[in-house]
Design a protein around this nucleic acid. Structure first.
Lengths: 345, 345
DNA sequence: GTGAAAGCGCTAACAC
DNA sequence: GTGTTAGCGCTTTCAC
């Protein structure tokens, strides 16, 4: 930077300003600096800026995995929303492990991000304290938070699964199975199971839960689960799969075995991925707003940054309980969901 | 850090060492430091460490998009491979724009990454200079490089498409159409088109290229392209789609219109995504090693880091031409591909 | 609109 | 195995 400054005949601070807030520098000087940067091939060292200013241009995000199209979509939308404001995304995947999330978070915080985006509302014990101490905007995504760390955006997985189950019952099905993921790994999948149980209890029907042999991210696991269902002495009339990918596999198996869908077995999915429409018959499913979650998370981050220390603010107002409750509502965006009825159920 | 040091009764440098190279610190002191860190809730500021040591713990990666499952898979594998060595991934997506790549790279370089991973071998003019000047390990992925910036891992998209086209011809098809993406956006798609043209020229057949109306990442675009193909006065006998997603859409259309696959229209894809096996009939396609590319990229990054300034090394040896050629071969990993014959063609 | 001086929190280099 | 000193390259603060 000193080289650039010397070449442009200005002080280093002017170079710094020309880069960060050009409107503070006169057009001629700005142009001289630009030329000097070009000539020297100067690339700023953000580590120094971050150290001095205690603010980076990075937002940290933790997702369970990028292998699932839906999280990748959310992250991509988040990155897009942040980039227009010059913010970089520092991404880490936790592999669905809550413990890993805490240690990953510590590492990410060391990079001095200006905000943090988490997946889910279910975290390791230290996470909340770690984040509150930092007083930076935090956005939890993909589920609704009763008590958000700071802000949240998502929808109720539980309510969505309940509604789909009720919709299946409304079509006259009594023996409705839920095909879920192994417990204790995916919190959102557990919420969906809970919603299914809610509905079955309301209906006075017996819950019937079948397990996928992986996280339900593969077509093949859905195929295997469907085979297990159909091999029973008395198969269910309807099967509600924890996501579209597995449900798609189930439809394929039925087609292969000559089981009519929905007459022989009604099948519902979750997600409304493109696969749902392409399936034959197309899948009845729940539409969830993956990209919108990412875009909204970006908006919440920017709002938090603009509004000053987000967490601090909420805590400062803690004396007035109503104010806090009101703030919590505004900070917690429910994007909703939609049950989509197609031919598979 | 001073707080931690005081509490543990040691100097700050000892805290630093306890964190970065524990074996240099006696077990008792290490334990005292650990307790002090715990008690104070200390989180290291990597910006300071990066500034002083001129080495971060970050690897920068640029991908066209994370929305495509295949890049997400590669990135996830890359992140896994790096995390075990304590390296974070700083990811940015370029939206398939070569110009964006350069400005994104400048921003990423400002974060002082220790290595850079790029997608493709086709870059903006400034990229090579920017990276060579930095003398850090660079890995180009997803295609073979004639003249890699430093290291590369991928396979020949062109050879793969050529081979698939020849395989289709070997089944007796003469009117073989290629369904590709709009030109000038996806370099790897362009390579596949080139491979198709190579094969058709060798066979003495006329090339017949149909265009998808997006980047071929949607089932719907494949459906529309298949409709266009079938609406022709003389439809082709075989259609080779630039990827499985679009090919899957084409199969769905044929099924809906009562066109037998492969007799009415043989269909081939590219990628061997899970969709290919789930399709009905299953897709003939080219298997490409998405996750392996990511894992190998991680290995190449680590090798580069271990071997000292990677680019510098290659340039230092530039006098001995054979040595360079040898090094280039070793630095350029061809993971190959495999034509998978299934029922769709 | 521009500049000078100070220092962010850590680690390299060297001493012990 | 542990400590001392100095300084990484910026941006803050304050002055002009």
């Amino acid at each position: 930077m000193a080289d650039v400054a010397a070449r442009a005949g200005v002080g280093t601070i002017t170079v710094s300003r020309a880069l960060r807030s050009p409107q503070q520098v006169s057009p001629e000087v700005r142009e001289r600096v630009r030329a000097a940067i070009e000539a020297t091939g100067y690339v700023p060292n953000f580590a120094a800026g971050t150290l001095k200013s205690q603010r980076s241009r990075m937002v940290a995000a933790i997702v369970p995995t990028l292998r699932s199209a839906i999280f990748a979509e959310t992250v991509d939308a988040l990155a897009d929303g942040l980039r227009v404001r010059g913010l970089q995304l520092l991404i880490a995947s936790s592999g669905y492990s809550v413990e890993a999330e805490e240690s990953i978070l510590r590492t990410l915080l060391g990079q001095q991000p200006v905000a943090v985006v988490l997946t889910g509302t279910h975290h390791a014990p230290g996470v909340r304290a770690l984040l509150r101490a930092r007083r930076l905007p935090v956005v939890e995504t993909w589920d609704l938070a009763d008590d958000p760390i700071d802000r949240a955006v998502g929808f109720s997985n539980r309510a969505a699964a309940r509604e789909m189950t009720l919709a299946l019952a409304a079509r006259g099905h009594r023996r409705i199975a839920f095909v879920g993921t192994p417990p204790g790994v995916e919190h959102r999948a557990a919420q969906r199971l809970a919603g299914y149980r809610d509905a079955m209890a309301e209906l006075g029907l017996d819950a019937d839960v079948e397990m996928l042999d992986d996280l339900g991210v593969s077509i093949a696991s859905g195929e295997r689960a469907a085979q297990a269902l159909l091999a029973r002495a008395q198969p269910p009339q309807a099967a509600f799969f924890v996501n579209d990918v597995a449900a798609f596999g189930a439809v394929q198996v039925c087609q292969r075995l000559g089981v009519d869908v929905p007459r022989g077995l009604a099948i519902a999915g979750f997600g409304d991925f493109e696969l749902a429409r392409a399936s034959n018959p197309p899948l009845t499913t729940v539409r969830i707003p993956g990209a919108l979650i990412g875009a909204t998370a970006a908006r919440l981050v920017l709002e938090g940054l603009a509004g000053g220390g987000a967490v601090a603010e909420a805590e400062g107002a803690a004396e007035a309980a109503e104010v806090v409750a009101g703030a919590a509502r505004a900070r917690c965006v429910d994007l909703g969901f939609e049950v989509i009825s197609r031919k598979s159920a």
